[in-house]
Each structure stands twice: as C-alpha cells, then as structure tokens.
C-alpha cells in the first residue's frame, strides 16, 4: 500500500448527497479479478454516454478537474455495496483523499486499506472547501495526515479526527495482515478456549 503523508492538489467538487458505490464504479466493472485499471471507469455512467463518449458537463471531464487528487463530496459518500472496487477505481484515477460530512462505514474502512484518506469535517468546513474545489487549480487544498489538518487555499486550516491505528498504518503504508500475524499466539489461544466454550461454533 502507498504511504499517505501530505498532498496538495486540485479537488473536484461533487456536492451531490448519497453518492453510492454503484455510481463510483458500476457493476459491469466488478467482473475483474485484478485490483488495477479501474480508473478509466470511475463514475462511468455519470462520466460517459452509453456509446462511450465523455459527457462534457461531468466534473472529472472538465479540463480544470482532470488531474484531481481530492474529491469534496456531499453527505454519505460511498454508501451501498462493500465493493473495494470503489476505492480501487478512485486510487487508479489518482484520487488520494475524499472530504465529506459523512461516509458509509464499509467504504470508509476500504479507503484506508488502499492508501486513500477519507476525511470527515463539519458542514461549514466542507462548504468552505467546496468553494475552493469549484475554483480548480486556482484554489488547491492541502491535506496533512500527520498533523490531521486540511488547509484551504486562503490558509484556513480545519482539524480532523482519524483513528490512531488507521493513521499509523496509512502514514507508514503498512499491511495489516502482517501486523495481525504477529498476534498469532493470541489467536491460537482464543481458538482453543473457544473450542471448549462454544464447540458448535
């Protein structure tokens, strides 16, 4: 997994609420057995006509936001299915952070496994950053995981919360299976005790 420390980049404004994982990556692209190559299909049905032409109005098709690294989104981003293809597609496109007032639980967790930082901020902060996002490259946003701040183009900094363990893994690009494997003796002990206490399980 790629480390995440600090990024300064263009943010795409996507104020629509309840952007679901079917929008982020429609089901026809879930048939892959790989993790890579999904960026071209990110937001596919919002981004392309049925015959594959770009829809010019869609934000990521506009020249100002084609190089976006951040999305500033409406409430409840990533709701719906558990498909990790959603963060895979975002990452493959080049998105490293999504900022919203709220995220769906599974999507939020999936982001951290893929080097993407989802950030929850209050409505006023998201509104402020949404205004920056609308200005494209003229108002780049800085996300600093170490210091847990998002800084708007005018220098206003917004502090955000992040789970300490998730932060540690993301800052260092750690594979958490490896970390859990270090606790294998605790798992062995649990299984032994569990086999006695709940032999049917």
């Amino acid at each position: 997994m790629d480390k995440f420390t600090t990024i300064t980049g263009i943010a795409a404004p996507m104020p629509l609420v309840n952007i679901d994982t079917d929008m982020i990556i429609p089901k026809q692209f879930l048939k892959t057995i790989k993790r890579s190559g999904l960026g071209v299909n990110l937001f596919d049905e919002m981004r392309y006509t049925p015959d594959g032409k770009e829809i010019p109005d869609f934000v990521l098709n506009q020249p100002a936001w084609r190089e976006s690294q951040i999305i500033v989104a409406g409430d409840n981003f990533g709701c719906g299915s558990s498909r990790e293809h959603a963060p895979w597609a975002l990452l493959d496109f080049g998105i490293r952070s999504v900022i919203s007032t709220s995220f769906a639980d599974i999507f939020y967790n999936n982001c951290f496994k893929n080097g993407i930082l989802p950030i929850v901020l209050p409505q006023e902060a998201v509104d402020h950053l949404m205004d920056d996002a609308r200005k494209g490259a003229n108002a780049r946003i800085t996300v600093d995981l170490e210091n847990q701040t998002v800084t708007a183009a005018d220098g206003t900094a917004f502090a955000f919360e992040v789970d300490a363990f998730k932060k540690h893994c993301l800052l260092n690009g750690l594979d958490d299976i490896g970390l859990t494997m270090e606790k294998v003796s605790a798992i062995d002990a649990f299984e032994k005790q569990n086999a006695a206490a709940r032999p049917w399980a």
């Binding site: 993790r35 299915s81 558990s82 498909r83 990790e84 963060p87 599974i106 967790n109 999936n110 496994k113 893929n114 789970d163 363990f165 958490d176 299976i177 859990t180 494997m181 294998v184 798992i187 299984e191």
Partner: peptide, 21 residues
C-alpha cells in the same frame, strides 16, 4: 454480521480475525 471489503476478506482468510473498533 456485516459486510467487509476485499482487503478484509484476505485478512479474515489469513487470520480468521478482523481489526475492528
């Protein structure tokens, strides 16, 4: 009972556990 992403699927396959808050 709850849904998990593919990275967590791999984690459960390998360790029969999940890291949770």
């Amino acid at each position: 009972a709850h849904g998990i992403g593919t990275s967590e699927v791999e984690h459960v396959l390998a360790t029969q556990t999940l890291i949770q808050k």
